[in-house]
């Protein structure tokens, strides 16, 4: 394939600043199982919630942070041509959602338990990708959240394995009871800046 132009350099990032519009959020945006915010949930699989807090240096809440989630469907497929099985992906699972933090730094996503899959890099454990943007954040803080029920798969996951062993638990959400709709809730805090033992590990983009 030819290149239509000389290579371009990606545009410089900047912060969203303090004034990211509240009106950009609609109820349901944080639900990955809906194809549209006002559509009913249509995904196959076991519903779950991923909740937690975004904290800044000193442990205080990071207010008005925006989180974007992306994950595979219940069978471990992505509805995207870079997944060889994308035509079999669940047409009722959107896979993307956006949430924002409240005055306590809390966020919540409703989704389904993601499926595991295997590709050239090896077996990937069920996981949810999160990106955090917010005032003062000058890029995408990208991390990946794992679930405690898949200890064996987590141990074999090449991305989790790229972290020192002591930091891996920081990316495993913990069971946190049931949500109002009866679905299990998994929770964890994301500390944007802290000491080496507690700061959330982020990945190079």
């Amino acid at each position: 394939m030819s290149r239509p132009n000389a290579p371009l350099v990606p545009t410089a990032w900047a912060t969203i600043g303090p004034f990211f519009p509240n009106t950009f959020f609609r109820e349901g945006d944080n639900d990955l199982t809906r194809m549209a915010p006002d559509a009913p949930p249509t995904a196959q699989g076991a519903p779950m919630w991923l909740t937690g807090r975004v904290l800044q240096e000193g442990g205080g809440p990071c207010v008005n942070a925006v989180l974007e989630a992306w994950q595979a469907d219940a069978a471990g497929r992505f509805r995207h041509p870079r997944d060889p099985d994308w035509q079999q992906a669940d047409p009722g699972f959107h896979g993307w959602g956006r949430a924002w933090t409240d005055a306590e730094g809390r966020f919540a996503f409703r989704t389904i338990i993601p499926g595991a899959y295997r590709d050239a890099t090896g077996p990937r454990a069920p996981h949810i990708n999160l990106a955090i943007i917010g005032s003062g954040i000058m890029g995408r803080l990208a991390t990946t959240i794992f679930l405690p029920a898949f200890a064996e798969a987590n141990a074999a996951d090449p991305v989790l394995a790229s972290l020192p062993e002591a930091l891996r638990p920081l990316l495993v959400a913990q069971p946190d009871g049931l949500a109002e709709d009866g679905a299990p809730r998994f929770s964890l805090d994301l500390l944007l800046r802290g000491d080496a033992a507690t700061e959330t590990p982020f990945f190079e983009d």
């Binding site: 800044q56 240096e57 992306w70 994950q71 870079r82 993307w96 983009d205």
Partner: peptide
């Protein structure tokens, strides 16, 4: 906020798999 909200630690390098190469 550029001090309070940016990690002190350098980001970890990871292999890129489907999950990073795809998106909505």
């Amino acid at each position: 906020n550029t001090q309070r909200r940016n990690p002190a630690r350098a980001p970890f390098r990871r292999v890129l798999t489907r999950t990073e190469l795809t998106g909505p």
